[in-house]
């Protein structure tokens, strides 16, 4: 159990570190969203798996129902985090594009082309 929890925690911490680092590494909002959303979601999921594995070990060794409750609530928290993070990232990206932030170093931008074709406000 010690080994499994340790491996999960190390993977989770590594991805969290990369996610926080990507905020300083990338040039604009969209690429930062890639790093921040994916890496921190995955890292936090792995720390949650570590917590769940720890309670599973305690459940097997002590047999108290308290730890089963812990596992269920942890799984619900992981599911909520997975759904809300993806949707929040989508909302921020859409808002940033509508407020006029264009992707830096972009090779192609179909959404901007569509706005111009529709006769929208030039930015």
């Amino acid at each position: 159990m010690f080994l499994i929890v340790g491996i999960f925690i190390i993977i989770g911490l590594g991805f969290n570190l990369l996610g926080a680092f990507s905020l300083y590494r990338f040039p604009d909002v969209y690429t930062r969203l890639h790093g921040a959303t994916k890496c921190t979601t995955f890292g936090t999921l792995f720390t949650m798996f570590a917590v769940v594995a720890y309670s599973l070990g305690r459940l097997v060794s002590t047999g108290e129902a308290r730890f089963a409750v812990f596992i269920i609530h942890g799984a619900v928290a992981a599911l909520v985090l997975l759904i809300t993070n993806a949707t929040g990232a989508h909302a921020i990206a859409r808002a940033a594009h509508r407020s006029g932030t264009l992707p830096a170093r972009a090779v192609v931008d179909r959404l901007e082309e569509k706005e111009e074709a529709k006769g929208g406000t030039p930015r």
Partner: peptide, 9 residues
Amino acid sequence: GNIRPGIVK
């Protein structure tokens, strides 16, 4: 840092 971003449809 190897990126080539863009928005596709």
